[in-house]
């Protein structure tokens, strides 16, 4: 269906949210992605991905607690919705299918 496609970066963000379980908010998601994927993403790019995911209904958000560290501003926690989990699983299945269709021979990389 159109509009429910999961982009590559969005997939990573969604996966990270699931990894972090209840502790997924801006700073933690960003840190996790930076460490695990070795990509240096900006908070702005992350925000765009998060808002797209929210628009598509793959994640939900709720306001968290404030702290002096954050200048008194509250956090926003993100969790994956059922729709989001389903989309992740579909994506995974699709990849596995394609992987399985590649003939064994292709995995032998010839060296000159």
């Amino acid at each position: 269906m159109k509009g429910t496609h999961l982009g590559e970066f969005q997939e990573i963000v969604l996966l990270t949210i699931m990894v972090l379980d209840e502790q997924a908010y801006g700073v933690s998601i960003k840190r996790e992605i930076n460490e695990k994927t070795n990509r240096n993403i900006s908070r702005g790019a992350l925000h765009t991905a998060l808002s797209r995911l929210e628009e598509k209904g793959f994640i939900r958000s709720k306001q968290g607690e404030a702290s002096p560290d954050r200048g008194g501003h509250p956090k926003r926690y993100y969790t994956a919705s059922n729709k989001g989990i389903e989309a992740l699983q579909e994506a995974r299945t699709l990849r596995e299918q394609l992987w399985n269709q590649i003939p064994e021979l292709k995995w032998q990389q010839p060296y000159a």
Binding site: G26, V27, R43, R70, G71, P74
Partner: peptide, 16 residues
Amino acid sequence: TIYAELQGDLEEEFHL
């Protein structure tokens, strides 16, 4: 609508 969340994240990250 999103200022509080983003500014908070920015500040937290700054301190880190």
